[in-house]
Design a protein around this nucleic acid. Structure first.
Length: 242
DNA sequence: AAGGCCCCCAACCGCGATTGT
DNA sequence: AACAATCGCGGTTGGGGGCCT
């Protein structure tokens, strides 16, 4: 696995690591197309970039995954799917490659077998429900209507001096986002994966879907003016009708 | 001790997105 | 607008090491 087409491939030697590290320390990250030449390495830009991002970068946490981290990976994977870089972005010191490898080697089998168990449970539950349905009497159920975030929420500052205000809880994934080029809730930008169809929907009004509201992971914004909220705009039927 | 098997993880590949000309 | 260069991501591969027989 070496010298294919003139460029070295395969496992990095300590000498190569030293050269790459010295080069990044001198010139900084980026401009990967220049790195191999600057460092005096016979490696392609991709190889250099990957070696730095996945191994040499001093910010990388090389300890084994903690229980909390594993738990977070599971929950984020459920929420985002195979968006390894996004998941890794929520785990300080972890790279997307680390997270991906950990998922495929430790978690995937576990989660799949858990899902199989869940399917069995669901099947049982369905049968029981069917049985129950055959014997029960029907009552009218009045469904509560959800609050929608009004379109004002994205156009006005979040903090309000009006004493007639209340605290709004915003999911941490949104509250912690720092990009300034995307749509936002007040002064808090929304990452694209949050306002895409599966999680957040942008239309006349901004509303939150079940999946984002279910997360017990909120940050509080005190004293939000009531005008941010439009009530009784519609129903979350999918909350009630499986 | 030796051979085979399996698991883990570093590294590569292909492709879509972004940026520059 | 079109094209080329570059970046960054996710999927996949393959080598090394540990374990089992």
């Amino acid at each position: 696995m070496e010298n294919t087409g003139g460029l070295r491939r395969g496992t990095w030697t300590p000498e190569e690591d030293k050269l790459l590290k010295a080069c990044i320390e001198k010139y900084g990250e980026g401009n990967w197309h220049l790195v191999s030449e600057r460092a005096g390495l016979n490696r392609c830009r991709k190889s250099c970039r990957l070696r730095w991002l996945n191994y040499l970068n001093p910010n990388i946490n090389r300890e084994s995954f903690s229980k909390d981290e594993v738990d977070l990976i599971k929950r984020l994977h459920e929420l985002l799917g195979n968006k390894w870089s996004l998941i890794a972005g929520r785990l300080p010191g972890r790279t997307s490659n680390d997270v991906k490898n950990y998922w495929y080697t430790h978690l995937k089998k576990k989660v799949v077998s858990e899902e199989d168990d869940e399917e069995e449970d669901e099947e049982k539950e369905k049968k029981e429900k069917k049985k129950l349905k055959e014997t029960m009497t029907f009552h009218e159920v009045i469904k509560p209507r959800p609050l929608y975030l009004s379109s004002n929420f994205g156009k006005q500052p979040v903090m309000a001096s009006n004493p007639d205000t209340e605290t709004v809880r915003v999911p941490n994934q949104i509250a912690n986002c720092s990009s300034a080029s995307q749509p936002n809730l007040g002064n808090v930008p929304i990452p694209s994966e949050m306002w895409s169809e599966s999680l957040w929907h942008m239309g006349e009004d901004v509303n939150a879907t079940c999946s984002s509201l279910q997360e017990n992971n909120y940050q509080e914004f005190p004293n939000v003016d009531n005008s941010f909220w439009d009530s009784n705009h519609g129903d979350f039927y999918n909350l009630w009708d499986p």
